[in-house]
């Protein structure tokens, strides 16, 4: 197992994703002799996990069952332990494409936070790219570094514990792309420019408030960035349902030739459709993209 390469069977030391039900998954660090409690009972790693193919159904002690899935950045995003607010897959997908990330890209990111986006970046830039990520909170920086090692992607990433607004990214002239998710991104725009390749590159800043976006855009203009573009992507999930719509009873049909036809009492039409969830996330953040021209 690795977050950047598939393997078929679960091995000791892997991180597997246990799929309990829709919207309920948990990460499990596989260890010989260990066991994991779930609401369906116990999973014994040595027999239930190790050596089994990913995607297997595992019957737990109480007779319930779960599926064990190969980790992906997308599953990790819904399973990871939150230390901060995180970016979700919808925004991550947009960021990845608009930053033009691909194998070999050199990327700078700040802050690292819980590492949700970091894993997606690493997946995309492997095997030849590199991620320089900056997190000013020491504990978080250490924790995420641990996770990268556990997930076998630490060779692709450098975590720096410093303040990006004061000290920058710790690299200059190397990045193809920059991502900022910090409270005052405008203070880091200069450092971002310095970290980018002379030949140019792409930048993205994620901010929840429009005032942050305005200051960032102004800073980007001042630093000579081009193609400045702010957008927002919202996910809509459609629940597939069979609905049944009753037909009203209009009473006996008087036109029929004297014969009184009794209409069926509880007639209804059923159809397959989708319903939107009662509440959906209406806003995550504005994504501001820009291109650094060649300097």
């Amino acid at each position: 197992m690795s977050f950047v390469e598939y393997s078929d069977c679960i091995q000791d030391g892997d991180v597997a994703i246990v799929y309990l039900s829709h919207n309920s998954v948990m990460p499990v660090k596989v260890q010989q002799g260990a066991q994991t409690q779930t609401r369906y009972g116990v999973i014994r790693h040595s027999t239930d996990l190790i050596g089994q193919p990913y995607g297997s159904k595992v019957t737990c002690s109480k007779g319930g069952w779960v599926y064990v899935l190969h980790p992906t950045p997308e599953l990790w995003t819904v399973a990871l332990p939150h230390r901060t607010q995180i970016l979700y897959t919808t925004d991550i997908a947009t960021i990845t494409m608009m930053l033009e990330l691909k194998p070999g890209s050199i990327v700078c990111e700040s802050g690292t936070g819980s590492g949700s986006l970091s894993h997606a970046i690493l997946r995309t830039i492997a095997p030849t790219g590199h991620l320089h990520t900056v997190e000013f909170h020491q504990q978080r920086a250490e924790k995420v570094q641990e996770e990268f090692a556990e997930h076998r992607v630490d060779h692709l990433v450098t975590v720096r514990n410093q303040d990006v607004c004061k000290d920058g990214f710790g690299v200059t002239g190397v990045a193809d792309a920059i991502f900022l998710d910090i409270p005052s991104p405008w203070e880091a725009v200069g450092h971002a420019k310095a970290a980018m390749k002379r030949q140019g590159g792409r930048l993205c800043s994620f901010s929840p408030c429009i005032e942050q976006v305005q200051r960032t855009c102004q800073a980007l203009v001042d630093q000579g960035f081009e193609e400045i573009n702010t957008l927002e992507v919202l996910l809509r999930i459609h629940d597939v349902r069979t609905v049944s719509l009753p037909l009203p009873d209009f009473g006996p049909d008087c036109r029929s030739d004297g014969v009184e036809e009794t209409s069926p009492n509880y007639a209804a039409v059923s159809l397959k459709t989708t319903t939107p969830p009662r509440e959906i996330p209406g806003h995550t953040g504005y994504l501001t993209f820009a291109t650094k021209p060649r300097t």
Binding site: V213, N229, L234, L235, R236, D239, Y286
Partner: peptide
Amino acid sequence: VNLRLSDTWLRHY
């Protein structure tokens, strides 16, 4: 598993 039917809205500013 994990079936999801979705679409996205895109808004430019």
